[in-house]
């Protein structure tokens, strides 16, 4: 037996809740399977019959258009039936608890839940609660984890850089509030990236982040030197309210990615962003649309990666 709630008794993936603690073999299996799904999404008929007859519920307790849409497309391309529930607007408003909602949907013979919640640990709670034949995918929980985003980032990095073992990767922006950054750091570490940097204002640096094995920089000039991959983070407007930053203009001046700053990285460095972007705050439009940007391929690969995760879960 193992204590990882994501794995079944045979060590196979039962739920995808976080990239933390997942062995490289499982991460690589997801990336390799996704390679085959990229071809499927480029055909006339972008569908395979793998999950025909399965019911997948997108449980979004926190609004998200992009992530929900990519999960929906991924499920539909696997021939599953998809039901989208925007729960903030329905039963939660009527006072139904999250687990009551899950119980009701389980009684409708759900096969898989995709869960987005503003509370860290929500997907874990559901995973512990559901029957063993139901699989749970965390689509983002509070500040904790966003594993499919990190996996699609890893897929994109491998597509452009081929190998993880000789890379210098910089994560830039609001590390403190970012579930994406946490999931990226765990995945990059497991896949053997030797140098992970975080570049962030002192006010957006979480305590004890060095324990994760990353190098901390507060200056873009130093932090971007000789970097192969830049993972930009979204600066969430609501974070401004906490008075951690003086102004968007000030942030852009110091941490916004301009071509001038990007030129400090390696000449073939790639720029990634989980979206949606704040142009002119964390990234300059010229860079976002520039030739080093792989932000739109990330979106395309995200569908293939989510198809791979759903398929592997449903098959275990």
């Amino acid at each position: 037996m193992n204590n990882n709630p994501q794995l079944n008794k045979s060590g196979e993936l039962q739920h995808l809740l976080t990239t933390e603690g997942l062995p490289a073999s499982i991460l690589l299996k997801i990336l390799d399977t996704a390679e085959s799904f990229v071809g499927v999404t480029e055909r006339d008929i972008k569908k395979v019959p793998l999950l025909r007859g399965k019911s997948i519920f997108n449980l979004f307790f926190e609004p998200s258009t992009r992530t929900r849409t990519t999960f929906e497309i991924a499920a539909k391309r696997l021939s599953a039936d998809v039901v989208n529930l925007n729960i903030a607007a329905s039963s939660q408003a009527k006072g139904e608890s999250m687990l009551d909602t899950v119980n009701n949907l389980s009684a409708m013979h759900a096969d898989m839940f995709v869960v987005r919640h503003s509370q860290s640990g929500a997907a874990h709670l559901i995973a512990r609660h559901v029957r063993p034949e139901i699989h749970v995918i965390n689509a983002g929980d509070g500040r904790h984890a966003h594993p499919t985003q990190a996996l699609l980032d890893m897929f994109t990095i491998r597509r452009y850089k081929y190998d993880f073992h000789n890379l210098r990767v910089a994560i830039v922006g609001d590390i403190m509030h970012s579930r994406v950054a946490r999931s990226q750091i765990h995945a990059l570490t497991t896949l053997g990236v030797p140098e992970i940097r975080v570049i962030t204002p002192k006010t957006l640096l979480p305590a004890k982040v060095e324990r994760l094995g990353v190098h901390v920089y507060h200056d873009m000039k130093q932090g971007l030197k000789d970097v192969d991959v830049l993972l930009m983070l979204r600066l969430q407007n609501e974070r401004m309210l906490g008075a951690r930053l003086p102004s968007p203009e000030e942030y852009f001046k110091n941490y916004g990615l301009t071509q001038e700053k990007l030129d400090l990285a390696k000449h073939d460095a790639i720029v990634m962003h989980p979206g949606p972007m704040n142009r002119g705050i964390e990234i300059d439009s010229a860079v976002a649309d520039g030739k080093q940007s792989v932000i739109l391929p990330q979106v395309t690969f995200g569908i293939a990666v989510r198809m791979a995760v759903m398929t592997i879960l449903a098959g275990n």
Binding site: G39, L50, T311
Partner: peptide, 23 residues
């Protein structure tokens, strides 16, 4: 062709361990 995504035994045995992209 890699027919892993079209196999009729997926629900019994899951995904074939080594899927290659069809080309």
């Amino acid at each position: 062709l890699d027919i892993s995504f079209y196999r009729d035994d997926f629900s019994q045995i899951g995904l074939h361990p080594q899927v290659k992209p069809s080309n």
